[in-house]
Design a protein around this nucleic acid. Structure first.
Lengths: 186, 186
DNA sequence: CAAGATCTATATCATATTGATATATGTATT
DNA sequence: AATACATATATCAATATGATATAGATCTTG
């Protein structure tokens, strides 16, 4: 999926800044898709050029201007068109796998070349990290006014994806804690 | 993890060609780490320059020469050194998450903008794909002579990772099949 | 309470990676 | 016989990363 399409898609759910999009991808969507600022900002500028979004500079007292992007009517119809095009392209390509780079698992694969205490530290930190993500994904508490995760948390799609992430994270955590002793001596 | 480090690590388990490394990453390691040829070949050439690997050209009848890379003594000690360095760097950085781009989940998030039949097709194909990966990961049958997955399949690390992948894949498959009806109106 | 760290916010850029394409032959399918 | 797919390496334009710069706000901790 093109980065522009993705940004446009997130903007269908309400105006957002580049920083907010990054926060979404690093936060509630972190198990789904990551992008760096270096991809997001140029993509938003391109969407501006093509009139698929408009931008309001929110001068904030003392903070740098927040550029809030809003999807236009043209942008919405373009999004629906290009999403379908990319979906059909995806189906045609036959490559249904995700793009994954798990430094964690790769290091575990090579763990016999590391001191056991390093491996144990890596696993400990990963377990803590996964528990944090699980909290983030499972969180059902109140949502504030300008909460960009609201629809993620209430729509059928959001609930489905959150449910999947929850199950997968719990399974992983459980497996790692039950089986880590098989990896390292002690 | 640097691509060179990763290639070197895979070579500690026996000589391999670039094509074989790609096969490993696309096959049994596909849920762990992916790299394109455009990353693998230059990395191997660099490892050659630095004398961390040697290369034997296997002239195959009519097929293009297969360049089989073997890790050197220098390469092995370099690998252990750099792996530890990168592991400590990883721990220090505090970013324990994986790099994930799931076009599948992103499209599901946007599924209300697609015709239901497209969403259903995408899910159907994904389920088939996951079942194929599960078969690949779970496979316990006989291994041939030049099977590059042998150690992946018998070492403690390999078993741990395969077990984790199996559990996660089964959980995902189960969840998707149980809950997909909540996504699309029939 | 001051110093240091972290957060909000955008931007840039050298380096790394992807994904497509080229080349060449073998094997399997239709 | 033709088409598709597998083996095998290589290149490269377009894209993405990850680090760095900038700058004020807010949180934290000895």
């Amino acid at each position: 999926m093109q980065t522009g399409t993705l940004c446009l898609g997130l903007l269908t759910d309400g105006p957002k800044s580049g920083y907010t999009i990054k926060q979404l991808l690093s936060g509630p969507l972190n198990q789904i898709y990551n992008l760096s600022f270096g991809s997001i900002y140029p993509a938003l500028n391109k969407l501006m050029d093509e009139k698929y979004v408009t931008c309001k500079q929110h001068a904030q007292d003392k903070k740098p201007d927040k550029k809030v992007y809003t999807i236009t009517k043209k942008g919405t119809s373009y999004f629906e068109e290009v999403l379908l095009k990319e979906a059909l392209e995806y189906l045609r390509s036959g490559t249904y796998g995700d793009q994954i780079k798990s430094e964690f698992l790769m290091m575990l694969l090579f763990s016999k070349f590391m001191p056991p205490e390093t491996t144990n530290l890596i696993i400990d930190e990963r377990v803590l990290h996964m528990r944090q993500i699980l909290n983030l994904v499972e969180y059902e508490g109140p949502t504030s006014d300008q909460d960009d995760t609201r629809s993620m948390r209430s729509s059928a799609e959001g609930l489905f994806i959150r449910g999947l992430m929850t199950e997968v994270l719990k399974t992983s955590l459980n497996y790692i804690e039950q089986n880590r002793k098989k990896l390292n001596v002690k």
